[in-house]
Computed example of a mutant assay.
Amino acid sequence: MTLTVLEPEGLYPDTSLEQRIMGPSVRILQGACKASLAELPDALCEQADALMTLRMAVPAEQIARFPKLRVILRMGVGYDRVDRAAAAARGIKVCNVPDYGTQEVAEFAVLMALALRRGLTLYHDTQRDPSPARWGVMPHPAVRRQEVQTFGILGMGRIGTAAALRAKAFGYRVAFFDPALPNGADRAIGVTRCRTLDELLAKSDVLSIHCPLTRNTRGLIGERELRLLPQDAVVINTARGPILDIEALERVMREGHVAAAGLDVLPVEPPAEPVPALLRAYRDREEWLNGRLIVTPHIAFHTPQAWDDIRLKSAETMRDVLVEGLNTNVIPPDSD
């Protein structure tokens, strides 16, 4: 029996690697969708036993268009774009690729913190001004020696652990909160476990978010939580935008409680009107944000090697689950 795998976004120039890994029992079809699965013709949907997507959401109404579907593979770590309840109701397995881009995202998070804490962004932002007053040392609440700070990690999975190791190498004390992590895992790398989120926040001079977006983490870091951070803390988010209340972040930054932030992710991507107040101030180059904000377009994962890993590991996962009947990287339907 031939199985059909559909990759609707046409991400790669051919399917030779996927074909080699999945084997002759699999037929691989590519689409050319630019925005959503709604662009796919019904005739293509009706053929697919499995679906591989990177950027596109897989909502319930689109799942309903795939009568033969057995596997949905999200070609990335996060799986919040897939309606897992709708998939579970049909017995469709949902998978992700949790082990790509680990080094890249961890490095990016720590680099954002370093750039803000050592004034790299401050001096970059201010040298557009030719005034002699801008040439030289400028005291700023974001600038601080790494060794006197605690780097707090929310979510100690693969990326959080990699970030912890890198932060330690730069001299930070490292603490984390992750109720899903078994006891003892922290001792292997010499970091401090916090029993509660509030405990982590109270000691985090840098808060770096590395948890997945679930029903329990959506809006997890709001104004109350941001005000629990020490004065002049730095907030880094390379996970998912909706975990952090960006409007609350703007308020506590404008008031001066949080010194700076690095955001690779936003609540809506790409940003749409009405644009969050913080992003609007950033785009308008408001002076109060000098040295205090880095915004990047969800690219922390990006290197050519990471793209190669996405392709390879996605094909291997699809082979395991669709062809060989394994549960490699299958997300339990009742997980958060």
Results as ranks from 00 to 15, higher is better:
31 G>T: 10
268 V>K: 06
24 P>S: 15
110 V>Y: 10
32 A>T: 13
219 G>K: 02
332 P>F: 00
196 T>V: 09
91 G>N: 05
8 P>H: 04
310 I>Y: 06
318 M>S: 02
255 E>Y: 00
199 E>K: 03
244 L>C: 09
229 L>K: 01
235 V>Y: 00
198 D>I: 02
137 V>M: 12
165 L>M: 15
293 L>A: 05
165 L>C: 14
115 A>I: 04
153 I>G: 06
144 R>P: 04
135 W>K: 14
234 V>G: 07
62 Q>S: 10
169 A>V: 13
34 K>Q: 15
151 F>A: 14
268 V>Q: 10
202 A>M: 03
168 K>F: 09
233 A>Y: 01
144 R>K: 15
271 P>A: 12
24 P>W: 02
95 C>K: 05
53 T>Y: 01
28 I>H: 12
196 T>Q: 06
14 D>I: 11
218 R>C: 11
123 Y>P: 04
314 S>W: 00
17 L>K: 12
266 L>G: 06
131 S>I: 04
103 Q>F: 09
197 L>Q: 12
80 D>I: 07
210 H>S: 10
15 T>C: 07
93 K>Q: 14
281 A>C: 03
268 V>P: 01
81 R>W: 00
323 V>I: 10
129 D>W: 00
232 D>L: 00
282 Y>A: 13
252 V>Y: 01
276 P>A: 01
18 E>Q: 10
300 A>I: 02
336 D>C: 09
269 E>N: 09
148 V>N: 11
208 S>A: 08
34 K>T: 15
174 V>E: 10
328 T>W: 00
288 W>Q: 07
129 D>Y: 01
236 I>W: 07
253 M>W: 04
302 H>K: 05
272 A>Y: 01
61 E>S: 10
43 A>L: 12
251 R>F: 00
25 S>L: 08
47 Q>A: 11
199 E>Q: 13
92 I>K: 08
141 P>Q: 02
268 V>R: 09
169 A>T: 14
119 G>C: 11
251 R>L: 05
97 V>M: 05
16 S>P: 01
73 L>P: 02
193 R>D: 11
274 P>S: 06
97 V>A: 05
248 A>Q: 02
279 L>Q: 06
2 T>C: 07
94 V>T: 08
128 R>K: 13
44 L>P: 08
284 D>Q: 15
244 L>G: 11
238 T>K: 03
94 V>Y: 01
87 A>G: 09
43 A>K: 13
225 E>Y: 00
101 G>N: 12
88 A>N: 03
196 T>P: 04
63 I>A: 05
84 R>V: 15
80 D>C: 07
19 Q>A: 14
170 F>T: 15
245 D>H: 04
269 E>T: 12
151 F>E: 13
16 S>T: 15
